[in-house]
Structures are given as C-alpha cells and as structure tokens.
Nucleic acid binder design. Structure first.
Lengths: 139, 139
DNA sequence: TTTAAACATTATAAAAAGGTCTTTTTATCC
DNA sequence: GGATAAAAAGACCTTTTTATAATGTTTAAA
C-alpha cells in the first residue's frame, strides 16, 4: 500500500468534490459518500480534518449546507494530500525502513539506491493534481 | 508506506540471514533480533510464518539450533517477500483504490495512467534480491 | 539429564477504521 | 419572528488489524 486508507479516501473524496462542486454550491457529504463508496460517517471526519488543517474546502452547516472547494482543483496535488493525511515522511523514506538521515549504519548504501524510485514516485504524485484526476473520469 | 512493518521486518531479517548464514550454520533468532532492531518474540513469529509458507529457510530446535537459509540469497527478491507477507495485490493496484480489473467505472483511465509507475516500482523490487541488498552493507 | 534453542499459544497494547448519538447552525415555512 | 427540518460538527464508542509481550512446550545436543 502506498498510503493509508484514510489518505486514499481523502484523495477520492477531494477528487469528486473538485470535479462536481462549482463555485458556491455545496455538496452533501452523503452524496459524496454514495458516489465514492466511502463510509459516510468516516467521510464526515475526513472532511472535518481537511477543513481544519488546510484551506482547501469550506463547509456550511444547516439547510442547503454541505462542503465545497475553496481553491482551484489544479492547485491540489496528490502529494499535498498524502502529506496532510499521512505525514511528509511517508513517501520519502528508505525502503529498508530508515530515514534519509539514518546514520545507524554509516556504510549502508540502501537509501542512495532507492532514492531513484522514491523520486519517480514523488514526481508522479506531484503531477497528479485533482483536475488531472477528474479528466480521467473516475466516477 | 510501501508495505507493512511486518513485511519490512521480514525483508531486514532475511537480508541479515542471507548475509551472515553460510551453508549449514544456524544463526540464533536472538542474534538476528539484536542486529536488526526487530523485537525478538515478534521475529520468532515472522520466521515461523516464513518457514511454513516458503522453502527459503530451515530452522533447528535444541542446542546449537537456530535458523539458516535453505536457498541462495540471490534467488529471493524483495517482491517475493512482499507477496508472501502482504499478498500479491499489495503493489499492483490502482493508486485510486481499485484493482486493475475494476470495472465499476468503465470510462476511468486511472489505472492506465498509474500503471507506468506501478511497473517501475515492481521492477525495482524484482531486481532487489537479498544478495544485492547485502552488498550495500545495511548492517 | 541438563540446558539452550526453536516452537506454540495466549494475552496485551496501540493504531486504524468505522459507527452512533447529540449538539449546533442555518434556511425555510408558517 | 418562532417552529421545524436539514445539514455539518463534535463527542464517544465499537470493531478490526497490527504490533508486541509473556509464558509454557518440545527438541536435541553436550
């Protein structure tokens, strides 16, 4: 698994939101839940977390409430979402278990050897913005 | 995270075993535990699982017992270990959450788009055999 | 027959995933 | 303007998975 389920849900939910919420119209969490196959209550929690940790979405309580994007889809990369949900160090760590700064074994060449593939993965996540995802019709 | 901690431990432990056990000499689980920073009791369980699911290692009870490699280090790839520990589908699934065969959304181009990077990752794990790892002096 | 080792089983802890119920906010209806 | 209903927010709880610890059992060499 490249990232947690929580993170996977966040990506799917934001992609749907970005693709379907035009400026100033709010989508129901229930609707997003139904269309992305994410448990509704869990999705509430996810949106809460995203709302409090980023400026990506705004939510409105009460009748005609819901959630909507606060910034353009093309400004949010998968990499950003992974960083917010799972932490910055999730991707960029040695596949052997250590950190880049791991000095336990000064002669170890593992990180150097896997940095290539880590960079490839990172580059991929950097170029995958929500609008790029939306164009692939995942819903 | 690219794979579970259980899997990471398995890779580290097998790499150590491959690097340090010559034919017919058994290493103590305790020694491997000490040198790889894996909890000793947990490592026992890992070796048990590996022993019963593969033909990679053999263990010997009693005095002068321990574990040793049953096949050559160069024949075991990281990919094999990931498949045994976390299951075959861990790596090769659409980063958007679905399987390759996911036909929920017939127009979705996500898997096609991420297959390139999935292949890169797979190729990397295929070429990383235990003897290649050992040459990097991770211990 | 003692002892050192893997093997086996059970229990515990922590984290991740998900559910339920109550509260608060807000628009709309009367 | 008050009542009502619809929505997110928030608090708390349950389940599942992952990780680890503890303890006893079996094996085999010295």
């Amino acid at each position: 698994m490249l990232y947690s389920k929580y993170c996977e849900y966040s990506i799917r939910a934001l992609a749907y939101l970005g693709a379907n919420s035009q400026k100033k119209d709010y989508l129901l969490v229930k609707e997003i839940s139904d269309n992305t196959n994410i448990p509704c209550a869990y999705l509430h929690k996810i949106f809460q977390d995203i709302a409090s940790n980023t400026n990506w979405i705004v939510s409105k309580k009460g009748r005609n409430g819901g959630v909507t994007m606060a910034i353009e889809s093309k400004k949010i990369k998968m990499m950003d979402i992974i960083n917010v949900c799972d932490g910055v160090q999730t991707i960029k760590r040695c596949i052997f278990g250590g950190e880049k700064e791991c000095k336990q074994h000064p002669t170890c060449k593992m990180y150097d050897n896997c940095s290539y593939i880590l960079n490839e993965i990172t580059a991929f996540y950097e170029k995958m913005t929500l609008d790029v995802i939306a164009k692939m019709n995942p819903f």
